[in-house]
Write a protein that binds this DNA or RNA. Structure first.
Length: 471
RNA sequence: GGCGACGUAGCCAAGUGGUAAGGCAGAGGUCUGCAAAACCUUCAUCGCGGGUUCGAUUCCCGCCGUCGCCUCCA
């Protein structure tokens, strides 16, 4: 896998054999998560599933940031949680709970498995305070007028562990006013003293206030995974400063290496541009669903691109993914019916399975893995039932990682409603009577009114729900 | 301004020093009352210009273009 810290692909070797500790930087729950956020969790999910597929036990921890963090140091702008709360006329915790719920719902729709531990920042303030105290005791942090800061000069290599650009080079482009309370411009806040009107504040040895943004991830990841753990994931935007700060404060506090492998997901783009509210490309999963797409088509789209290259979200791309998904389902359903639900593990190492596994083992190359799956699909479309049984076994096996509910689509049974059935029967009658004009009319009606595609096959008339696209 | 990534067919997207996976769309065909589905066939010399090499899309240099980061952000 590719490790951001060494900027190279290197073999993955876990700390403890057969076991992996993995931490995902979670969302700040002050608003709905957009598809870009969701995309990064789909990637994390595929990573987790891949490790499990290869037999590892994965302990996955994801945080929920339910404390508002406006700024690193210069206090400008407004607390995000506060903004969200005021907008809805509710308290910060209600807001956090509400958006957390919606977030978890979106994840389920995308077949993203639940992490073993989901930890909320507000539940871990004591741990953060402990950690800050340790840093002060060790001389890595100092108390200033408006909070506690990490002294970056005490941590050699600060800001360069994951980034090629040195801190000196950054100063040139600095665009935020330097806080005069800090000893060095690059120092970052661990604890911020409360200001009048702060909705969320806690007591601490340094007075009332709230924790800095970076400290929560250090405190929670180490609590659940230990001082050193295997894998830390996040969006590319976290490379700097968030993860650099995490490294600095964690390693300074423990004197041990913090994370063994870093994985950063490139941003999802909308029509080739970064999604941003100002550009109008801020979409939620519900938007995507309302346009007539299956959430799993979005997952398939995500799988179709390498996580390090980012994903370009376009309606064309979604159309392609939707068509592809529907074809997979049809093929599998047909094959499953042909084998009467039997599947058979191929003897020995099947070339297709091997191709699939090699692709995943090569830095989670899901596009390549999908190509292997397409080969299995071709096999499933043959008339040889032995071949089909093997193909189905392989597809269901692959689905442990792909997470496209292939098995469910094979066995899904759907019924026509009474209304639909009536139209369907009338068409059958017209067709039998040779009245093709009328039968074609009714077929069109089924499609346009109910989203039902009628197919006349040698084996009789079939139908299928295809949904209605476009908006 | 600094740092980084990328530029492969109409679109999305893998990949390799020896003439380029897969998907979507399209075209032709088989099947069909017609459709739909399915199946078969078909569809690229890899941004531009140099260089290294027996040979480069793949390595190096330059240029052009796109995108991201430079302390809110998955």
């Amino acid at each position: 896998m590719f490790d951001s810290a060494s900027r190279a692909v290197r073999p993955f070797v876990p700390l403890r054999a057969g076991e992996i500790g993995m931490y995902n930087c979670g969302p700040t729950v002050y608003d709905r998560q957009h598809i870009g956020n969701l995309y990064s969790y789909v990637v994390a999910d595929v990573v987790r599933r891949t490790f499990e597929y290869f037999g590892y036990r994965v302990k996955q921890v994801m945080n929920i940031t339910d404390v508002g963090h406006i700024v690193g140091d210069a206090d400008e702008g407004e607390d995000k949680m506060a903004v969200g709360a005021r907008r809805a006329g509710k308290g910060p915790l209600q807001i956090a709970d509400e958006y957390t719920r919606l977030f978890m719902e979106d994840r389920r729709k995308l077949n993203v498995q639940e992490p073993g531990v989901v930890s909320k920042a507000t539940d871990h303030v004591p741990e953060m305070i402990d950690l800050i105290q340790r840093l002060i005791d060790r001389g890595n942090a100092y108390v200033a007028a408006d909070g506690v800061y990490f002294d970056t000069t005490t941590f050699p290599g600060y800001g360069t562990r994951l980034n090629a650009e040195s801190p000196e080079q950054r100063v040139a482009g600095a665009r935020v006013e330097v806080n005069p309370n800090k000893r060095h411009p690059s120092d970052f806040a661990l604890w911020r003293a409360a200001k009048p009107g702060d909705l969320q504040q806690w007591d601490s040895p340094w007075g009332r206030g709230n924790p800095g943004w970076h400290i929560e991830c250090s405190a929670m990841s180490m609590k659940y995974l230990g001082d050193t753990f295997d894998l830390h994931t996040g969006g590319e935007d976290h490379l700097f400063p968030h993860h650099e700060c995490e490294i600095a404060q964690s390693e300074a506090a423990t004197g041990k290496p913090f994370v063994r492998y870093w994985l950063h997901v490139r941003f999802l783009r909308v029509d080739s541009e970064r999604m941003a509210k100002s550009k109008g490309g801020f979409y939620t999963l519900d938007d995507v669903i309302s346009w007539g797409y299956d959430p799993l088509a979005f997952r398939l789209l995500a799988l179709g691109a390498g996580y390090r290259n980012g994903l370009d979200f376009t309606t064309k791309g979604m159309d392609a993914a939707q068509s592809r998904l529907e074809r997979w389902r049809r093929t599998i359903r047909t094959a499953y019916a042909a084998t009467r639900g039997r599947v058979a593990e191929p003897e020995g190492d099947h070339a297709i399975t091997r191709e699939f596994r090699d692709a995943l083992a090569d830095d989670f190359n899901t596009p390549k893995a999908l190509a292997a799956a397409e080969k299995a699909l071709n096999l499933a479309a043959t008339v040889d039932t032995d071949e089909q049984e093997r193909a189905l076994w392989m597809l269901f096996d692959m689905d442990r990682v792909l997470g496209l509910s292939l098995k469910e689509s094979a066995t899904a049974k759907e019924e026509l409603s009474a209304d639909e059935h009536a139209v369907f029967d009338r068409r059958e009658a017209a067709r039998k009577a040779g009245d093709y004009t009328k039968s074609d009319e009714l077929r069109k009606e089924l499609l346009e009114r109910f989203g039902i595609q009628v197919k006349d096959t040698k084996a009789g008339t079939r139908w299928e729900r295809v949904g209605r696209k476009g908006a």
